[in-house]
């Protein structure tokens, strides 16, 4: 699967952009938090697309955000 790029996103309607990112994020999150993957992905999709693209390319920043999201969910 080719990497998702800003230009690929820009070619899609806004409502499809988040969906495209979510389809990439979900399997990565599912590997780490199987039970919470749907909720964590939904939370992270509220972040700006430009930052989400960086997270898809950087496992460290993605995992940091995942842990932040889990902490928020557990406090919620």
């Amino acid at each position: 699967q080719e990497p998702l790029t800003a230009s690929m996103l820009a070619a899609a309607p806004l409502h499809e952009q988040k969906q495209m990112i979510g389809e990439r994020l979900y399997p990565l999150i599912h590997d780490v938090h199987t039970q919470l993957a749907g909720k964590i992905t939904g939370m992270l999709l509220e972040i700006d697309n430009s930052e989400l693209l960086l997270m898809l390319e950087s496992p460290e920043s993605l995992h940091a955000k995942i842990e932040e999201a889990v902490a928020v969910l557990q406090a919620h």
């Binding site: 749907g38 992905t41 999709l45």
Partner: peptide, 22 residues
Amino acid sequence: GSSINWPPEFHPGVPWKGLQNI
């Protein structure tokens, strides 16, 4: 509103409900 349904969950192949807030 109620926070019980927050966050909008994402599931592959299913349109994400969170888009309603954008």
